[in-house]
């Protein structure tokens, strides 16, 4: 059978094919990606849309966790100092109620408790990077002095709370409104301190005892509220661990979707180089050959 004498187009097609393989192998090795355009693997390219969005979010979730943790930890330590202050107020009240104090002593104790009240108000007005820890979601100073109020201070915040997104469909409440911690109707920290100051100033042992008891009860109440912050801290810490695992999962997924196995890619590159030089060598060898090369030139 006669064969196609036009080997040039076929040789060129082979050459082109080997160059395409070489380029693909080179691109995969240099980018580390097996999917450089959606057509390389439409399914993987589509799956990467979700993966890209999730891993972008993940980094910020991690930032949010650390911001939230610092806010919760600050709140917790503020409440610790409030508990310490209230404990001193209770000792001051107990001392004032034992009936052996002079009017000067009682006034000194009243001044001490007044100082405690001021420091608790300062604590309740703590802000972290512009947000008040105990103002609900309000941006105004939570407690301001108000002579008309029995406690001497009014609450300007609201009763809402902020929740921070720390995962898909997962957010953690990071604060309690000040009205719940410091000026609650049943266990009013500021009110009870204020009453104790008045009781110490007026000097009646019974009144001092009653006021001390209510400060003590407020002290216990604040201790209970601290549990919320402890829980939030635990929740945030475990979420941080989860996010780290999720990050590994997502990057593993991304790698298996569009990444390239370097060993395979390097082997492919070597193979493509060999194929390409073989094709080039074949072209160089075959093309110049014809019957004419073997005929004696015409005499």
């Amino acid at each position: 059978m006669r064969i196609d004498p036009n080997i040039v187009p076929n040789l060129l097609a082979e050459l082109q094919q080997s160059q395409v393989s070489l380029n693909t192998a080179l691109q995969q090795v240099s980018t580390g990606l097996s999917v450089n355009a959606p057509s390389d693997n439409p399914t993987a390219a589509a799956a990467m849309v979700q993966n890209t969005i999730e891993s972008g979010d993940l980094d910020v979730y991690t930032q949010n966790v650390s911001t939230a943790l610092s806010s919760v930890q600050t709140a917790n330590s503020v409440l610790n100092s409030v508990v310490t202050s209230l404990t001193s107020a209770v000792s001051a009240g107990t001392e004032g109620a034992n009936g052996t104090n002079s009017a000067t002593d009682l006034q000194a104790l009243a001044n001490e408790v007044q100082g405690i009240l001021t420091s608790v108000v300062t604590a309740a007005n703590t802000s972290v990077s512009g947000s008040y820890l105990f103002g609900g979601t309000s941006t105004t100073t939570p407690y301001t002095a108000n002579a008309a109020s029995p406690a001497g201070y009014t609450y300007n915040g609201n009763t809402s709370s902020n929740s921070v997104a720390v995962g898909d469909q997962n957010s953690v409440q990071i604060n309690l409104p000040g009205s719940q911690i410091f000026s609650n109707a049943t266990n009013n920290v500021l009110g009870s301190l204020s009453s104790l100051v008045s009781a110490l100033q007026s000097g009646g042992s019974l009144a001092i005892q009653t006021a001390t008891a209510s400060v003590d009860s407020a002290l216990n109440y604040v201790g209970q509220q601290q549990v919320f912050y402890g829980n939030a801290e635990t929740q945030l810490n475990s979420q941080e661990t989860f996010l780290q695992q999720d990050k590994v999962t997502l990057s593993t997924q991304a790698n298996s979707l569009i990444g390239v196995n370097m060993a395979t890619a390097a082997t492919n590159l070597t193979q493509a180089e060999t194929d390409n030089s073989a094709a080039l060598a074949a072209v160089a060898k075959v093309l110049p050959n014809s019957l004419l090369s073997y005929l004696a030139p015409p005499a």
Partner: peptide
């Protein structure tokens, strides 16, 4: 398909950046 390839300015990247900017806002609302 060059418009659908991950270039940093494609819709995937922009959606991801928008989504994470909202997460950021959740942690730093003010």
């Amino acid at each position: 398909q060059t418009y659908f390839t991950s270039t940093g300015t494609d819709i995937t990247s922009a959606l991801a950046a928008f989504s994470s900017s909202l997460v950021q806002l959740s942690g730093n609302a003010n």
